[in-house]
């Protein structure tokens, strides 16, 4: 597995290269390469680590998530949970996406401090290892591989998160007057050579959640949807969304809800 990842990184540098050198061919080549790599995805390594973490008794309370964390399908049950989130959790009285829910379990069940998890929730380009939360998310997401999205949109609380997410995606502010929709509001748009999914359509929304969490070839790091939202707000020239906040859940509800009925292929590979 190690050597395969090294190979991915080497090839990714060769294939993707600096932005200025990218061409339409590079896009096509990447797609081919991604399809090949997905057969034996580097995400598996992170899944395996996540499974270990899920089953281990951890934190001040020395309990495992496998015995204590309910993702909506019963305590510890991972199968099919990812594609049914975001959903409403009565014990937290909140709509939560998968990552936020796992964080909630780590805090409420295992006794970790939220501040400690939120201090560095994403793998940086120079970090050898992904944070525990990323591994856990990857494991949980892998439990829904090849299952259709089934976000409970009939729940009015989920619907409210969805509609609020839609309104957030249209909110323009900041020095460049950008909203998500500036870049993701119409079909067939690109920033440089990067194709931008139109998040308001089912076809675009599924591209927004497909392959996340994903092994990102730029930098060779494993990253989650929470990271993707964070980095797009950076590009939007906004301040930073707080980690695992309702704001991020709302946007993920908007995208996952719009993807209902379409198949999630599991943790993937990203440019």
């Amino acid at each position: 597995m190690k050597s395969r990842i090294a190979l991915v990184v080497a090839l990714s540098i060769a294939t993707v290269g600096p932005v200025a050198a990218q061409t339409k061919d590079a896009n096509a080549e990447f797609e081919k390469f991604r399809a090949e790599m997905e057969e034996s995805s580097p995400a598996e390594l992170f899944e395996a680590k996540g499974e270990e973490l899920w089953k281990a008794k951890r934190g001040p309370n020395k309990v495992s998530l496998a015995e204590s964390c309910d993702l909506g399908q019963g305590p510890g049950k991972v199968e099919g949970a990812w594609v049914k989130m975001p959903r409403y959790f009565a014990d937290a009285d909140a709509v939560m996406d998968g990552e936020r829910r796992i964080v909630w379990c780590m805090v409420e069940k295992q006794g970790f401090k939220f501040e400690d998890i939120a201090k560095k929730p994403f793998q940086g380009a120079n970090d050898n290892n992904a944070p525990d939360i990323t591994n856990l998310v990857t494991y949980v997401a892998s439990g829904s591989r090849n299952m259709a999205f089934d976000v409970p949109m009939h729940d009015p609380r989920v619907r409210d998160a969805f509609e609020t997410g839609r309104a957030m995606a249209a909110y323009r502010a900041g020095p460049y007057d950008f909203s998500c929709n500036t870049c993701h509001g119409a079909d067939g748009k690109r920033i440089r050579m990067q194709n931008l999914p139109n998040l308001s359509t089912p076809e675009g929304a599924i591209r927004g959640v497909q392959g996340w969490p994903g092994y990102r070839m730029t930098g060779g790091v494993m990253l989650t949807s929470q990271w993707r939202m964070n980095d797009c707000f950076r590009q939007q020239r906004f301040p930073e969304p707080k980690y695992a906040s309702q704001a991020v859940t709302n946007l993920l509800t908007y995208m996952a809800g719009n993807s209902n009925g379409q198949m999630y292929k599991g943790p993937g590979i990203k440019r």
Partner: peptide, 21 residues
């Protein structure tokens, strides 16, 4: 609701101050 959420759930970072919202 979107505006309330944004104003509650964001924090300044680097040169991107809260007022930008």
């Amino acid at each position: 609701l979107a505006l309330d959420t944004i104003k509650r759930d964001f924090q300044a970072k680097g040169q991107a101050k809260f007022e930008r919202l």
